[in-house]
């Protein structure tokens, strides 16, 4: 069975990270299994963790009154989710729930926050990696907003 440090080391998110930093992060991590339908995060609840999905699908949702839960995005094996632990007030901004059995590594953001404050080099390394994920998500959201499957070119069929 692989150790937590080995599991993290194999993930691209942690590629190139100093071994002692990785060991520290591994010390803040634990394996978790969520059943289909389980909520992994709840809007406005304290966000003290982030997650590395090893297997399964997670829906990021927003509850809309008189409608129900609206799925904004699904995340899959290999994805990392959760950055609310990084920024005050450290509360989740969306719900996240398991669509099927989800195997995830849950990392203690509260513990990492303190380490980031006391060790700026470590903090910068981690922040760079999260900035990359946030940029990717922003790019995906922008593309989603563009409605790229609609045909917005000059009409092929002018009827003339």
């Amino acid at each position: 069975m692989k150790s937590m440090a080995q599991l993290l080391h194999e993930h691209p998110f942690f590629a190139g990270m100093e071994p002692e930093h990785l060991d520290f992060i591994a010390g803040c991590g634990e394996n978790h299994i969520y059943n289909a339908g389980d909520y992994i995060a709840r809007e406005n609840a304290p966000a003290d963790h982030f997650f590395l999905i090893r297997d399964g699908q997670v829906a990021v949702e927003c509850y809309v009154p008189n409608y129900g839960s609206l799925c904004l995005q699904t995340l899959h094996s290999g994805d990392i989710f959760g950055w609310s632990w990084l920024f005050p007030p450290h509360l989740w901004t969306f719900d996240a729930h398991a669509l099927d059995e989800v195997h995830a590594i849950r990392l203690d953001g509260k513990c990492l926050r303190e380490k980031c404050e006391s060790d700026p080099k470590f903090g910068y390394e981690l922040m760079k990696r999260f900035a990359h994920i946030i940029t990717d998500r922003l790019r995906a959201t922008r593309i989603q907003l563009m409605d790229i499957y609609g045909q917005r070119r000059p009409p092929m069929d002018s009827g003339q």
Binding site: C71, L72, T74, G78, A140, I143, Q144, M146, I148, Q151
Partner: peptide, 30 residues
């Protein structure tokens, strides 16, 4: 299925770049 744009699963898949061929069709922006 997934919720998100088609570039997501495309980015996530491992591609044997030397032995793959891609056929692509959709709006030009996509």
């Amino acid at each position: 299925g997934r919720v998100g744009v088609v570039t997501g699963p495309l980015a996530a898949v491992e591609i044997d770049v030397a032995n793959s061929v891609v056929f692509l069709c959709g709006p030009e922006i996509m």
